Simulated assay, not measured.
Amino acid sequence: MGAVVDRDVQRPDTAKESGAVETRRRGAVLEKAIFDAVFEELRHVGYGKLSMDGVANRARTGKAGLYRRWSSKETLVLDALRNVLPIPGELPAEGNVRDDVLMLLRCMQTALNSAHGAVLPEAAADVEGGCARTVRDCVIQPCREMLLQALERGVDQGSVRAEAVTPMIVGLGPSMLIGRVVTGGVPIPEEYVLSLVDDVLMPLIRP
C-alpha cells in the first residue's frame, strides 16, 4: 500500500481564526493520527458504531484519504491493532518451553498494558462479531499458534507431555491475560504473568 498523505489542509481564514499553522501531514505522522483516532473511537462509541466518518473527523483528515488505503472500517481497525501488537515473528532458535511461553505471554502483556491495550478486551467482546473476529485473528490466534509451536518443541525436548498439547491448554494463557484485564484492568503486573506460567501452565504440561 502507498504512503498516506493528508491533502486536507486548513484554509488560510480557518488557520487565522484558530491561530494554527497550515500543515500537511503524511506518512507515519498521519498514520499515527489515524490509528490514535481509531482507538479513541473504539473507546467512545465501540466497534459497532465506529465509522470512517468518525475516525476521519477525530483524526482531522479527509474520509476519501482513508478509503484510498482501507476499504472498510474492519481493515482499518485490523491495521491499527497490528500496529500496536509486539507479537514476535518466530520463536528463538534455542530455548526451553518455560522461557518460550513466558516470552509470548509477556508480548501479550506488553500489548494489553499499552496505551491502547485496554481497548482490546472491549473490542473482543463486541457482540456483532466484526471486531471480535479482528482481535481474535490479530491477537489471540497468532499467540496461540506460537504457543502450540512452543509446546510441540517441548514434547520433542521431553519437557512437555504430548497429551498436554490441546487447544484448551494452548488458549489458556491468552484467555487468562485478557480475562485479567476485563476483571482487574491494566496494567497486568509482572507477578501475575510469572504466576500464570509457573503456577498454572507449567504444572499442567510437565511430564
Rank of each mutant, 00 (worst) to 15 (best):
A150C: 06
T166R: 14
Q109R: 14
L66G: 05
L91F: 01
Q10P: 07
I178C: 04
S114G: 13
G179M: 05
G171M: 06
V197P: 05
T183V: 08
Q149F: 11
V55A: 02
A37I: 03
P187T: 05
L201F: 13
L104H: 08
R106C: 06
G48A: 14
P174W: 08
T75G: 01
R206L: 15
N96T: 10
T110D: 07
L204M: 14
P92R: 04
K16Y: 02
E31L: 09
L91G: 05
E122Y: 10
R82P: 00
P187A: 01
V9N: 01
C143F: 01
D100C: 09
R161L: 13
P167E: 01
R60Y: 11
L42T: 04
M168K: 13
V186S: 12
R69W: 03
Q141S: 12
R24M: 08
V21N: 00
L85W: 09
K63Y: 05
A28H: 10
K49I: 07
G130I: 05
I188L: 02
A28I: 07
L91E: 11
E40I: 11
L50F: 06
L172S: 13
R82T: 11
A93N: 11
G184D: 09
L147I: 14
E74K: 12
A64Y: 13
P174M: 07
V127W: 12
A28G: 00
D36V: 01
L50E: 01
V139W: 01
C107M: 04
R206C: 11
R106K: 08
Q10T: 05
P88Y: 05
L201C: 09
Y67Q: 09
M1E: 04
P207F: 13
E22C: 05
A150S: 15
P88A: 03
M52F: 03
V170C: 12
L42F: 05
Q10I: 08
C143G: 01
Y192G: 02
G54D: 09
M146F: 11
R98A: 14
V21K: 09
E163Q: 15
G19T: 05
A125L: 09
R106Q: 14
Y67H: 15
G62P: 01
A118F: 13
K16Q: 10
T61K: 10
T61Q: 06
E191F: 07
M103T: 00
T166A: 10
V38M: 01
Q10H: 10
R7A: 04
L204D: 11
V181L: 02
Y192M: 12
L42G: 02
V55N: 03
L147D: 10
Y67G: 06
V139K: 05
G65Y: 00
L76D: 00
E90Y: 08
E190G: 04
R136N: 13
D137V: 04
A118Y: 11
V186Y: 08
M168N: 14
G117N: 04
P92L: 02
E41V: 01
V155A: 12
Q10F: 03
G173M: 06
V101A: 15
L78T: 15
